[in-house]
Each structure stands twice: as C-alpha cells, then as structure tokens.
Amino acid sequence: GQTTVQVRVPYRVVGLVVGPKGATIKRIQQQTHTYIVTPSRDKEPVFEVTGMPENVDRAREEIEMHI
C-alpha cells in the first residue's frame, strides 16, 4: 500500500525544491509517481510525500539533493 513520509528541509531550500511556479516539485512528483504537499510559508519546512514506498524513497532523495 501507499505510505506518507515527512521530509524536513532547511527553510532556505523550500523555494529551491518547489522551483519557479512549482515546476521542480511537479517534475519530482511526475518522475517518482508520488503526491507531494508543499509546506506553506508560515509552517514548518516539511514536505509530505505520499506514494508507494520505493517511489517515496526516490522522491525524498530528489528533495534532499537540493539541501
């Protein structure tokens, strides 16, 4: 079944991970077949990644490449 993982990043890289108009996070979602919730600016900088476990792992690696 599907799993949801929280990926915490430093505040300063949230914009990098999301990309211009969300382009980068969309690409990560498409490439890894996951659904990613982006943290809002006034909340903790935690991305929520949902999908099959192996896909979630890949998405987390993609996010962490920006750190």
Rank of each mutant, 00 (worst) to 15 (best):
Q30A: 14
I25D: 02
R12C: 08
Q30P: 01
L16C: 10
Q6A: 12
V7S: 06
I25H: 05
K26Q: 09
Q6E: 10
H66S: 09
M52I: 11
M52E: 11
E62R: 09
E64K: 11
R58Q: 09
K26C: 00
G22M: 10
R60D: 00
T50I: 07
I28T: 09
D57L: 13
P20Y: 10
K21Y: 13
Y11V: 11
V13N: 11
E61L: 10
V49H: 00
S40M: 13
Q29C: 08
E64R: 09
T38N: 09
V46R: 05
G19C: 01
R12L: 05
P20C: 07
P20V: 07
I36G: 05
E44T: 02
E64M: 14
R60M: 09
A59E: 00
Q29A: 14
Q30D: 13
M52A: 12
K26M: 10
P53Y: 00
D57A: 15
I28K: 01
Q30G: 05
E54I: 08
E62I: 09
Q6W: 06
G15E: 12
G19R: 03
G51S: 00
N55R: 02
F47G: 04
N55H: 05
E62A: 14
P39E: 08
T34K: 09
F47Q: 04
T50W: 06
T34L: 03
V13C: 13
T50R: 07
V9E: 03
I63L: 08
H33A: 11
K43A: 14
Q31G: 05
T4S: 02
R12F: 12
G19L: 00
L16S: 14
N55T: 04
V7F: 12
R58N: 08
R60L: 12
H66L: 15
M52W: 08
T34M: 02
A59F: 00
V46G: 03
P45V: 00
R8D: 04
K26L: 04
M52P: 05
V17H: 11
V7E: 08
R27K: 15
G15L: 00
E44L: 05
G51C: 00
A59M: 09
Y11A: 15
T3A: 02
Y35S: 15
V5F: 09
R12K: 14
K21E: 12
E44K: 03
V49Y: 02
V5D: 00
V9G: 06
V7T: 02
S40I: 09
T34R: 04
Y35C: 12
R8W: 08
A23D: 06
E44V: 07
K26R: 12
P39L: 07
I67T: 13
K26I: 00
K26E: 09
I67V: 15
R60T: 06
P10I: 04
G19E: 01
I63D: 00
T38F: 06
Q6V: 14
E62G: 04
G51A: 04
E62Y: 10
V18W: 04
T32P: 04
P45W: 01
V5N: 06
V56T: 10
K43T: 13
N55L: 01
V18S: 06
V7R: 01
V13K: 15
H66E: 12
I25G: 04
D57F: 11
V7P: 06
A59V: 03
M65T: 14
M65C: 10
P20M: 02
Y11E: 15
K26Y: 00
R27S: 07
G19K: 02
H66V: 15
P39V: 07
M52F: 11
H33S: 14
V49N: 04
K21W: 07
V9C: 09
T50L: 06
K26P: 06
T24E: 09
T34H: 00
A23G: 07
I25Q: 01
A23V: 07
P20R: 13
Y11T: 15
E62N: 04
R12P: 14
N55C: 06
V18C: 10
Q29F: 01
I67H: 12
K43Y: 07
I63C: 03
P10G: 02
T3F: 07
R27Y: 06
T38L: 10
E61F: 09
Q29D: 09
T3H: 10
Q2I: 11
L16I: 11
V37H: 05
Y35Q: 15
V49M: 02
E62V: 12
H66P: 01
Q29M: 15
V5S: 03
I36S: 07
P20L: 05
G15M: 07
G19W: 01
V9A: 04
G15D: 14
Q6F: 13
I63W: 02
I36M: 01
P45L: 07
T3G: 06
T4L: 02
G19D: 03
E44D: 14
G22A: 07
V13Y: 12
T32R: 00
V46L: 09
T32I: 00
K21F: 14
T50V: 03
E48S: 10
P39D: 08
I63T: 04
H33Q: 14
G22P: 01
E48C: 09
G19T: 01
Y35H: 15
F47L: 04
V13Q: 15
H66W: 12
T3Y: 09
Y35I: 13
T50H: 09
R8M: 06
E44P: 08
E61V: 11
E44S: 07
R60A: 03
V56H: 03
S40T: 12
E64T: 02
R41T: 13
E64F: 13
Y35R: 15
P45A: 08
D42L: 10
V7Q: 05
K21I: 06
V46W: 04
V37Y: 04
V14A: 06
V18A: 08
V7M: 07
L16P: 05
V49S: 01
F47T: 06
S40V: 10
Q30I: 02
T38I: 11
R41G: 11
A23E: 12
K43F: 08
P10K: 06
Q30N: 07
E48R: 12
E61N: 09
M65V: 07
Y11H: 15
Q2L: 14
Q31S: 09
R60H: 08
P45K: 08
T3P: 02
Q2G: 08
E61T: 13
G19P: 01
G51F: 03
Q6I: 09
K21L: 11
E54C: 07
R27Q: 08
E44C: 01
I36H: 06
R60Q: 04
H33Y: 08
P39A: 07
E54Y: 08
F47Y: 04
H33D: 15
E44I: 00
M65H: 15
P39W: 05
V5R: 09
I63A: 01
R58T: 00
Q6S: 13
G51W: 00
E48F: 13
K21S: 10
P53R: 11
D57I: 12
G1R: 13
T50D: 01
H66I: 15
I36L: 02
D42P: 00
Q31R: 14
H66T: 15
E44M: 04
K26T: 05
R8L: 05
L16H: 13
R27H: 02
A23W: 06
V37C: 11
I28L: 06
